[in-house]
Design a binder for these strands. Sequence first.
RNA 1: GGGGAGAUUCCCGAGUGGUCAAAGGGGGCAGACUGUAAAUCUGUUGGCUACGCCUUCGAAGGUUCAAAUCCUUCUCUCCCCA
Length: 409
Amino acid sequence: MMAGLEELRARDFIQQCTNIDGLEKLLESDTVSFYCGFDPTGPSLHVGHLVPLFAMAHLNRAGHRPIALVGGGTALIGDPSGKTEMRKMQTKEQIASNAQSIKNQIAKFIDFDGGSAIMVDNYEWLGGLNYIDFLRDIGRHFSVNRMLSFETYKMRLETGLSFIEFNYQLLQSYDFLTLYQREGCRLQVGGDDQWGNIVSGADLTRRIEGVEVYGLTFPLVARSDGKKMGKTEKGSLFLDPGLTPPYEFFQYWRNVADPDVEKFLKLYTFLPLEQIKELSGLKDSEINRAKEVLAYELTAIVHGKETAEKAREAAAAAFSSAAGSTDAIPSIEIPRSEIEAGIQVLDLFSRTNLCSSRSEARRLVVQGGASVNDKKVEEVEAVIDAGWVEDGVITLKAGKKRFFQIRVV
RNA sequence: GGGGAGAUUCCCGAGUGGUCAAAGGGGGCAGACUGUAAAUCUGUUGGCUACGCCUUCGAAGGUUCAAAUCCUUCUCUCCCCA
């Protein structure tokens, strides 16, 4: 029933481990409770959180028990790991509301209903912490000399590190200890930027409880062009459909670089490895099929099958003039009367997400990148009227692949 | 607490009285080439009622015909000493 690390290993999830052989044995012999923390510093998880989410799901499927920890307490402080600047402080209300939405997103990867998986918020034990007690019981186990030797802090020593951030590691370590005590949690997983914090937590638990607990990190995925995952010109790619429309989410994956396809299929889908091998072996333009599968599978997990279908259909219709509904393409509504009166192309484009100002729209037209219903706009002064409406819709295109629809109502 | 340096357009970073909407690089966007890929080349990159006007160079005042550039105060950051 129980399975070890083979799935994670086969899919290249493993970056570092405190004791890989020990962990493997433990996982094979028993149901292991493990945890992963998520910071509720934003209203939604983003693509960067996907690797830990998938990893948790794989471990869950292998028969282990996930504990999703929402850092309602630690978020009040901010983790300095991997950051060059201090995070903005957030109010408790903001964090509480973020925590709630994040819980719903994690639930897409882990089954909280049927299984034994649980969700906890560290505010529960950090919120009322007594400073003196904490220093006496926990603080004495930490050596500043050792902490300063961590890469995370070295970097921040260059730019400045506040004491409150320096404390973050103690709190996260305390989380691990607490979860061991309360839930018998033996493993903490996370992105590789969490390595220092995870090791500290394992050390602390060993010192106080005299047991070995484990830490495991996953690679921080970068795209083959060196850019950060999921960063678009508009910011992060979020899992919340309100922040990143599913169509846009789908398109992001549909457009990944060739060399990334195999890696992403392994990390970001549940497809069997044989199928992944087959898909990523496709050559030249054929590999586009693999990208479609990647985009569809992942969108289906995050947004549901139906939504994924729509996104796929809309993309196919827009790009290859295949028949199909284009409902999923981003759109706005404009009253019929306004269209009948005629709208300047520049105004039309700047009212959509395609352009943020008339100047930008003008530039687009001048450079030959604007089209309406697939006809290139030649004139900056052009006016769009009711004659352009097809089936209640006008389709705008900026560049080669950014589509937008005007729905006439 | 004492001394020093600095805050420039999305980012890095020039500019120290008019020739500055502000060099250069990065990023973004567009065009060519393609496979809705990568690489490469080219153009472009504050706004507008657009060959002119308006708003920008940490904040607020001031000097001047004229300031991102000079003066005053303030806020923040970094460095050195204690």
